[in-house]
Design a protein around this nucleic acid. Structure first.
Lengths: 348, 348
DNA sequence: CTGAAAGCGCTTACAG
DNA sequence: CTGAAAGCGCTTACAG
């Protein structure tokens, strides 16, 4: 039998007040005399008492307080990507700053999200943020029915009645392509993602779209799965062809770095002399001197902040209609891209 | 007023049994007739009922069950480091696999850990894992008093009565240095960490120790703070001197990559022709073709697994004495190190 | 195997 | 401002 932990009753006895008074002493807006509160707080300190958040949320459940458990579920995936790894840390800070705790659940595939949410709901989370993955239509409805606000971060689902915060991936893809076309490239390859990933597909769609409008033919497409090594392999394939591309757009930075390392260190090519390279996301390693990778930057901090704010707002007003924030990406031009038309471009 | 969520009473009514029966239906080892359980489970499914984990843990609190809340607090820091970012994901998976949930708290400095633990304790976590940072002696005692097992991951505190799981940093430092000395380097520099960081200091201690024993003089010391850019700056300083080192040992991979990029792309040096480079940790980017960074590898997976196991064991047997696991690092020799003595070494 | 009842540690109307 | 009491949604002795 374990030790009983000290409760508000112990403090009440020590302070010579009722248990209710102890509870009030720890509730910011409760009606309690200043002197009483101080006496209680002192006794609590002496005994090392801290209110039990779990019990607290049980009692509040009845009322329908805004912060019921103080728990926010976060479902996380794609940790291979430094962009996302960092994100958890930032998110964690934001959530803490708002006075919530973060219950983290890691999944490997989209299909696990529903069951993860189910588990999290057993803990009566006040809300959920889903990073870089999606939930089923059915589960979205369940969340609404149970009044658990959800925010999709870096993903969205057409027609789904859920908050989302996301960069304009298609626009970003266009931006990248425009840069490549404007600087006179005409053998432009793309390293896309698997077709299941809406985010990556949208970037590629923007790319294809712009190419079409500009009347430039797609040189060749390779596919990767968001990892460095898949980028490396794509790069190896890209430059083992009879005719090589003069520009490569990768739908993620990590893959772009894979292409870069393969081309430069395994095939002896030079960037941007032999080809221009463009990524997406602007991860820290993109600006390392040896990489100097041009890319489309996402306003990550801002997106995180907004995601948390939207969640908090929605928790306060459960009936508000879903918000879908879209952000423009910024072209960050580094040395991996040829800056102006090359002589040969004028020769045409 | 919010909707009342459905409870075991609703299910009981629907299934025509007592509320106790519903509870038993959801407890694996409860004494309940198979038929009853099935009937209850069916009714529950129909109503979309799931036991409230919070209420559940409240009731169990009385008993002193092993899994009280099912919550494990994780305190996390140093997200700049890809090594650690990945770690959270791995840890999260392990924790989930054991049936626990992970309550993540992010801190920036060691000094915030105590208060983070305090907050987590309000949620009645069953145990805590502290990543790469430490707790005060006082807080360690509080945890023991409240019977909350703690495991330090990648850190340890001399004389503190707490479980820990950690690589033998000093041994790793020695291993690295041995490699450098044995291959004939004699102008060996080190990029160490700030003196507050026991982990980094231990690596450096091993380095200095071995050098002393081998009778090789320390060429020069630079200091970084675990980030790429601090490594880069250290590299810039290192090679702007009249006489340059012929080998650099960095106490972390990220800093080593900083040195590499600075040397190669900003100063035009070649690795390992101009100097050998050795890191610590073996992060993914270490093996990228262009980096091919030699390093000391940590058995990360195993350490994570052990940390979780130790925590679980300790939660089961609260009186077990603290375990301190130490792991040997492995030297991973890649191209950033000169493999054998150079001609000039024989000329001496 | 089953139900009635106490209790986990709080919060908050309710009545002073 | 304060205390007594009900209730949050469960689990588990206890008595059948």
């Amino acid at each position: 039998m374990r030790k009983r932990s000290i409760t508000s009753y112990d403090v009440a006895k020590a302070a010579g007040v009722s248990q209710s008074a102890v509870s009030r002493a720890f509730s910011p807006n409760a009606s309690i005399a200043k002197a009483t509160r101080e006496r209680v707080l002192e006794a609590a300190k002496e005994l090392g008492y801290q209110p039990n958040a779990i019990a607290r949320s049980m009692s509040s459940a009845r009322i329908g307080a805004q912060q019921k458990t103080g728990l926010i579920g976060v479902i996380f995936t794609r940790f291979e990507d430094p962009f996302f790894a960092r994100m958890v840390a930032d998110l964690s800070r934001s959530v803490q700053a708002c006075g919530w705790q973060m219950l983290l659940f890691t999944v490997d595939t989209h299909s696990e999200v529903d069951s993860a949410l189910n588990t999290l709901m057993q803990y009566k989370i006040d809300g959920a943020i889903i990073m870089s993955t999606i939930l089923s239509d059915q589960m979205a409805q369940t969340c609404r029915a149970r009044e658990i606000p959800v925010v999709l971060f870096n993903q969205s689902v057409e027609g789904l009645d859920v908050n989302s915060v996301q960069i304009d991936n298609r626009g970003g893809g266009r931006l990248a392509t425009e840069c490549l076309v404007e600087t006179g490239h005409d053998r432009i390859a793309v390293v896309g993602g698997e077709t299941g990933d809406a985010t990556l597909m949208a970037r590629e769609t923007g790319f294809v779209e712009y190419l079409l409008e500009a009347g430039v033919e797609l040189f060749i497409r390779e596919e990767g799965n968001f990892t460095f090594s898949s980028g490396r392999e794509a790069g190896l394939r890209l430059f083992s062809r009879r005719e090589s591309p003069d520009a490569v757009f990768c739908v993620s930075d990590v893959m772009a770095l894979g292409v870069l390392h393969a081309a430069r260190f395994e095939l002896g090519l030079q960037v941007p002399q032999d080809f221009s390279l463009l990524g997406f996301e602007d991860i820290p390693a993109a600006e390392w001197p040896g990489h100097s990778l041009s890319t489309i930057r996402q306003p990550t901090r801002r997106m995180i902040r907004d995601a948390v704010n939207i969640l908090v707002d929605n928790m306060q007003d459960l009936d508000s209609s879903p918000r879908r924030e879209r952000y423009k990406g910024t072209l960050i031009l580094r040395e991996s891209c040829r800056k102006r038309n090359l002589p040969e471009a004028t020769q045409r």
